[in-house]
Simulated assay, not measured.
Amino acid sequence: MTDQDFILKSYNTNIENGTVKWESPSNIALVKYWGKKAHQIPENPSISFTLSDCKTITEISFAKRDLSTSFSFEVYFEGKKNEAFKPKIQTFFERIETYMPFLRDYHFKIETSNTFPHSSGIASSASGMSAIALCLMSIERSLSEVEVTDKSFNQKASFLARLGSGSACRSIEGELVVWGKNESIPESSDLYGVKFEGDVHSNFNNFQDTILLVDKGEKQVSSTVGHQLMYGHPFAQERFKQAHENLAQLKTILASGNLDEFIKIVESEALTLHAMMMTSMPYFILMKPNTLEIINKIWSYREKTNSKVCFTLDAGANVHVLYPQKEKESVLEFIKNELIRYCQNEHYICDHIGLGANQI
């Protein structure tokens, strides 16, 4: 499949208006992607847990208008008009117009909100851009003159979401999603995320993710800039090779249920992500002292109790604490007693694996 397969060839021009609404979750990568080629193509594959409760809810109303040379839209966040989001939506529309030629035919009112606090330090680009992509796909489905199957709907929604934010392509489905071509997963693609269809042991059923909010402030280096610093990075090619190998290993681990091996891969991936940042030129550090305090506390707790709790990190200071459902009570007690003191305002969010986006 190529990007040409996603171009809408013809559509009904008689539909005057309508409204669609979707909720789409965030996700947390287990094998990280860091570095991308042109057109939001990843340099290496990744796999993520889809979350359940941390999600964006987006409603788009559309109304026919006279043909214009520009896009027409307004954006509301949490009920208030938000001009700050408009440049990103403008760029997104410019990237996807080839595939959705009806965009200039309508005025769009985009109303969006998050189930998690906007200042919580959780990246909302994955849930936010995937929710918009899904709404636009529902509009396309209503305009399309040919049947749109659920499979093709999800593929194109993921394809479009990727053009808004790379990780957003992993938020369409659940519980595990792979993005980026990898030999061990034949159906994988650089163009969109695919639901992981391999065997998954019951040890991973309803896996828990408690997000410790170490720093709610804006990162001093954006992910976009961080990805660009992988160009010419002295360790980039070895890192891309490592990600391929780790994904292949993780496929086997997910089937076997070996939590010790799962921990090794997931924590190594998190630390490698930040190692690439620290060895970029210019170099930068997104972890905070309290990030390291939490990591050391987790390691100490695991050694003392033989718990299967582990951590992962996004491109920031916050810590995702991952653990099996059967340990929920004991790990939450550990978090409350020993870890929340390292969180900003003792703020943390409890979530778990989810099944993907839903139309409302």
Results as ranks from 00 to 15, higher is better:
residue 28 I to R: 00
residue 295 I to M: 13
residue 230 M to V: 05
residue 302 R to S: 05
residue 97 E to M: 05
residue 104 R to T: 05
residue 330 S to R: 08
residue 132 I to L: 13
residue 295 I to Q: 06
residue 199 D to W: 10
residue 61 S to L: 11
residue 7 I to G: 03
residue 208 Q to A: 07
residue 7 I to Q: 11
residue 163 L to K: 13
residue 99 Y to Q: 02
residue 203 N to Y: 09
residue 40 Q to R: 02
residue 118 H to G: 05
residue 226 G to Y: 08
residue 318 N to I: 05
residue 294 I to P: 00
residue 359 Q to R: 06
residue 326 K to S: 12
residue 338 E to P: 00
residue 230 M to T: 04
residue 181 K to S: 13
residue 344 Q to I: 00
residue 239 R to C: 11
residue 268 S to G: 11
residue 221 V to A: 08
residue 18 G to M: 05
residue 332 L to E: 15
residue 233 H to T: 10
residue 197 E to H: 10
residue 218 E to Y: 10
residue 189 S to V: 02
residue 166 G to E: 02
residue 256 S to T: 12
residue 56 T to A: 08
residue 154 N to S: 12
residue 358 N to F: 05
residue 223 S to I: 07
residue 346 E to H: 13
residue 262 F to I: 07
residue 296 N to M: 12
residue 254 L to K: 13
residue 161 A to H: 01
residue 244 H to E: 15
residue 54 C to R: 01
residue 55 K to F: 01
residue 97 E to C: 02
residue 330 S to H: 09
residue 133 A to P: 00
residue 176 L to R: 01
residue 186 P to S: 14
residue 146 V to L: 12
residue 100 M to P: 01
residue 162 R to K: 12
residue 153 F to C: 08
residue 236 A to L: 13
residue 296 N to K: 14
residue 160 L to G: 01
residue 350 C to H: 15
